[in-house]
Simulated assay, not measured.
Amino acid sequence: MKYLKINLVILTILISHASLPAQTNKLSINQIGSHIGNGIYHNYHPDSIEVSKLCRRACVFIKFKVDQKGHIVDLDFSKDSISFIKEALTKAVYSLQKDSELMEAVKKANKTIILPVLYYYQAGCNFPTSQPTEASKEETNGDKRKESYLSIYADSEFFGATIWDMLNFNKGKLEVIDCLLLGPSRVGAGSLE
């Protein structure tokens, strides 16, 4: 009888220690955003040829849920998202399923996830170069170069439109949503000269 009690105590200790690492590795609600952001950052690979042609600064809102099996479902993007960006983001979002710890936390939260992704693609903008040309030397104070720069910059700016449509997804417009709204992620290519 004495050995049975000792064995039960040892078994209880072993079981409690075996479950301890699982308890300490669970993500908090606050950690979900950084895990998703890091996963998107490391797995987002848009078509570089398309990126080199694009002159646009905007935001796309990603919406998805995790079902009880730990699979990403109901993936959708805000309207007017550019197709090659959506394709790359789709792959990046589905790659999150490899992170079982993240999938378990999002499943347990039982909320739709909304992730804003800001993007800055300026490689295709054709901004005036910083070196003046013969024609620009003749212009008064470089006014035409400045106007050209401002016109290109204004034409590439879509943040207002994408914020306005933040709940207008391809599968339908929402008026309200109960969700976890994550802090934005940022991607980009090209630079201002």
Rank of each mutant, 00 (worst) to 15 (best):
M1T: 11
M1D: 09
Y3P: 00
L4T: 10
K5H: 07
I6W: 13
I6V: 15
V9H: 01
I10E: 02
L11W: 08
T12Y: 07
L14N: 14
L14R: 10
I15K: 03
S16K: 04
H17L: 15
A18Q: 09
A18W: 11
S19V: 15
S19T: 14
S19Y: 15
A22F: 15
Q23P: 00
Q23I: 08
Q23W: 12
Q23F: 09
S28E: 11
I29P: 01
I29E: 12
N30R: 14
Q31H: 08
G33W: 01
S34K: 08
H35N: 12
H35R: 08
H35D: 05
I36K: 01
N38Y: 04
N38A: 11
G39H: 02
H42D: 14
H42S: 12
N43R: 01
N43E: 06
Y44T: 03
Y44A: 03
E50D: 12
S52E: 12
S52F: 03
C55F: 05
A58R: 00
A58K: 00
A58F: 03
C59A: 15
V60L: 07
F61R: 04
F61Y: 15
K63T: 02
K63E: 05
K63Y: 02
F64C: 01
K65V: 06
K65H: 08
V66A: 07
D67T: 07
Q68M: 11
Q68R: 10
Q68V: 08
K69G: 10
G70M: 05
H71F: 12
I72M: 03
V73N: 06
D74A: 09
D74I: 02
D74W: 03
F77Y: 14
S78I: 05
F84W: 03
F84R: 04
K86Y: 05
K86R: 15
E87L: 09
A88M: 03
L89G: 04
V93I: 10
Y94D: 11
Y94T: 06
K98P: 01
D99A: 09
L102E: 03
M103R: 05
V106K: 00
T112D: 07
I114K: 02
L115M: 14
P116L: 06
V117Q: 00
L118S: 06
Y119V: 02
Y120L: 13
Y121W: 02
Y121A: 00
Q122P: 00
A123T: 10
A123F: 00
C125I: 01
N126P: 05
N126R: 10
F127K: 02
T129Q: 10
S130I: 13
S130M: 13
Q131S: 09
T133I: 06
E134V: 14
A135E: 13
N141A: 14
G142Y: 05
K144W: 04
E147A: 13
E147G: 00
S148V: 07
S148L: 10
I152V: 15
Y153E: 07
Y153C: 02
D155L: 10
D155E: 13
D155A: 14
F158I: 01
F159M: 15
A161E: 13
I163K: 14
W164D: 11
D165G: 01
M166S: 08
M166P: 01
M166Y: 10
N168Q: 09
N168P: 02
N168G: 06
F169V: 00
F169Q: 00
K171Y: 07
K173N: 12
E175V: 04
I177G: 08
C179V: 06
C179N: 11
L180Y: 12
L180R: 06
P184V: 04
S185R: 01
S185G: 14
G190D: 07
G190F: 04
S191D: 10
L192S: 09
E193A: 13
